[in-house]
Amino acid sequence: MDFTLAYNAAHEALPYMLGGVVWTVGLIVGAMLLGLAFGVPLAVLHVYGPWPVRRAVSTYVWLFRGIPILVQMYIFYFGLLAWLSGLPLFAGLGLDSPFVAAVLVLGLTSSAYQSQIFRGAIQSLHAGQLKAARALGMTDAQAIRSIILPQALRLSIPGWSNEYSILLKDSALAFTIGVVEIMARMRAIASTTHEPVSMTFLAGIIFFVLTWVGVKALNILESRVRIAGYTRQGAA
């Protein structure tokens, strides 16, 4: 293998590959936010809900954690969303786009994982704080919103950065239903340039950099919102 050739090929391919970053970032930002929007209420219901609700949440979590993302992508893209977008009610909403299917699958799966991150954080809080909030006359909703969640969300950031880095790499599966993100572009360009090794390597580097940037950003967020004197175990 000629390294100069490989380098030149990678160099030439870089702008095209970076075009995929936009899609990848779109996928994970959409999925993380969807996962957050669903994950927080799911976690709250999982901890404080009456038992039928807890059971329902737990079933949801089992389903999305138990079915491979690839399988879900097929079910959503070729099945559910294709069928929905055929209905007059949903026609023209773009539900049949592979990007929408991928964001939904990644987001719903992430909401299942995120709900467990938040649940762990909520349950790690000393139960006495909820008691104290109730004793002051707060409703449970008020106590959860202004006492429990502000603390639980802070504690969730390390778990969240883990979830981000996993989700980022899961997003590569979106190429299977036709989202032109990094992996899709890597495969396309590898088959035209006959440089699969250098292209794979390039894709790997791009994913690594994206992981690094995101995790760093979350680390910064974590220290920004840290409460005085309330450090992680073992941190100075």
């Binding site: 006495g128 704080q129 002051l136 006359g137 707060m138």
Partner: peptide, 28 residues
């Protein structure tokens, strides 16, 4: 309504850890 009029002090304080002393008193 009852709890608003009945103050309670706990053995282990149960302060809200993410709030300053002032905010602890202010929040309710």
């Amino acid at each position: 309504a009852l709890r608003q009029q009945v103050g309670m002090i706990f053995q282990d304080f149960n302060l809200f850890d993410h709030l300053s002393a002032l905010e602890n008193v202010r929040v309710a």
